[in-house]
């Protein structure tokens, strides 16, 4: 075959270019450890996602020092959890699956991008060095509301990140002279112990308690306040630890009626069957505290 010299040179240059491309990508994969979405994960029945250990409750989990796992479910037309919150300076492995049709999980402007196929679980490990806020889009057409499918990824500064959950169980209404109990439970979903101070403010009173919640554990404590000290009336209270607050209103009355159901307000109160005699004060009870 008769090939012109220039054409031979061109052929060689083209081959060098091609082999060069393959070599750089191989180097990126082997040398720099850039891994691709592959078949590492087992399959999952989309109809059983709700009962799945990982995807039943989509969430972020702390699995090692600076290591997190995010279990994300995509469905028409939303991601959950939303927003996804992780700390800066961490390594997060995303596991993403779909409940219905093919979606994608794509963090805008980054190379965090994967198809999400029902029945399959995409796995991607990402390092977040800096705090920032990113939009998550579905970039595979998934139906008529496809353009509404979005989520957020918050990478928060390391020192502002925790996975603490505070809940308070308190009475709504008590008779003068009763003991008011505030059952505080603090869940720490991080692996490290959480050392913190729980505080209760009610009326002029301020109670404090040091708490140590072991990693992955839940601690409970109870604040008690004598209603005699508070006096009759509405008393707003606030339980706080770190950045979390829970508040409500306690109504102290002279005498409870026994046949009325209690009314709920923002505090988690039990079903003590308290009576409400003087409920008119409920709406304006905010001022007399703090």
């Amino acid at each position: 075959m008769n090939i012109h010299t220039y054409e031979k040179l061109w052929l060689v240059a083209a081959m060098v270019l091609i082999v060069g491309f393959i070599a750089t990508i191989t180097y990126g994969s082997v040398g720099l450890g850039i891994t691709m979405v592959g078949d590492q994960q087992p399959t999952i029945e989309p109809s059983e996602i709700s009962d799945d250990e990982r995807f039943g409750e989509p969430r972020v989990e702390h699995v090692g020092e600076n290591e997190y796992e995010a279990y994300v479910v995509a469905q028409t037309f939303a991601f959950s959890p939303d927003p996804i919150e992780v700390p800066a300076n961490s390594e997060v492995t995303f596991y993403v699956t779909a409940r219905d049709v093919i979606h994608s999980f794509s963090v805008a402007g980054t190379n965090i991008n994967t198809m999400v196929i029902p029945g399959e679980i995409a796995e991607m490990t990402v390092e977040f060095d800096e705090p920032g806020e990113y939009g998550i889009v579905c970039n595979e057409y998934c139906g008529s509301g496809h353009h509404d499918m979005e989520g957020m990824l918050h990478v928060v500064p390391e020192d502002e990140f925790d996975m603490t959950e505070l809940s308070v169980d308190a009475d709504d209404e008590l008779e003068l002279g009763d003991e008011a109990a505030f059952n505080v439970s603090v869940e720490n979903r991080m692996l490290d112990d959480l050392e913190t101070t729980a505080t209760l403010e009610i009326g002029d009173e301020m109670l404090e308690e040091e708490l140590t919640v072991a990693g992955g554990d839940l601690e409970e404590t109870t604040f008690t306040v004598d209603t005699t000290d508070l006096g009759e009336g509405e008393h707003d209270w606030t339980v706080a630890i770190d950045n979390y607050e829970e508040s409500g209103t306690l109504t102290v009355v002279e005498e409870l009626e026994t046949d009325d159901e209690n009314e709920d307000d923002d505090g988690d109160n039990g079903s003590d069957g308290d009576d409400d005699e003087n409920d008119d004060g409920e709406t304006d009870g905010g001022e007399d505290d703090e």
Partner: peptide, 18 residues
């Protein structure tokens, strides 16, 4: 910038492409 293909409205509520 991350603007997706196949989308009727690549304008989102929570964020903007930069």
């Amino acid at each position: 910038l991350g603007v997706p293909r196949r989308t009727a409205e690549p304008q989102y509520d929570g964020f903007e492409f930069e």
